[in-house]
């Protein structure tokens, strides 16, 4: 399995954290809050599509609110393979980072 891209990884994590309330607006908002940079709807739609196609996410129609003009939400859930992908990505990242401290990095830069 190929590794997830950084954007995919973040979107997957956001979906997992939001549990039953993961749809466009909430995902974008959560990512904006956690990363500190602006994630807009346009930014997340394509990763969402791609993740769903790969089978990492499943989606279903959710309830609608007045605020949405009566339109329903597309709610996303993490699938089993999505979870595996997240775990694998994290493990890989950790093994790459193993034994590297911030101090090491700064020294390497200085020389």
């Amino acid at each position: 399995m190929r590794l997830l891209s950084r954007a995919e990884e973040m979107v997957l994590l956001a979906v997992w954290r939001l549990q039953d309330n993961a749809y466009g607006v909430t995902i974008a908002r959560m990512l904006t809050e956690t990363t500190g940079t602006a994630w807009r709807l346009g930014t997340i739609y394509v990763p969402l599509e791609r993740l769903e196609k790969k089978g990492f996410l499943t989606s279903s129609l959710g309830n609608s609110t007045n605020k949405r003009g009566g339109r329903s939400k597309r709610l996303y859930r993490l699938s089993k393979s999505g979870l595996n992908a997240l775990i694998k990505t994290r493990n890989t990242a950790e093994s790459v980072w193993q034994d590297v401290t911030v101090m090491d990095l700064e020294e390497g830069y200085g020389s």
């Binding site: 466009g24 607006v25 709807l41 739609y45 609608s64 605020k67 949405r68 339109r71 939400k73 597309r74």
Partner: peptide, 19 residues
């Protein structure tokens, strides 16, 4: 522009709009 699937994306935008 955002290739809406059944109005759900428009829903998202409307929500942002009302916020």
């Amino acid at each position: 522009l955002f290739r809406d699937d059944g109005g759900m994306r428009l829903g998202d935008f409307t929500e942002i709009f009302n916020d």
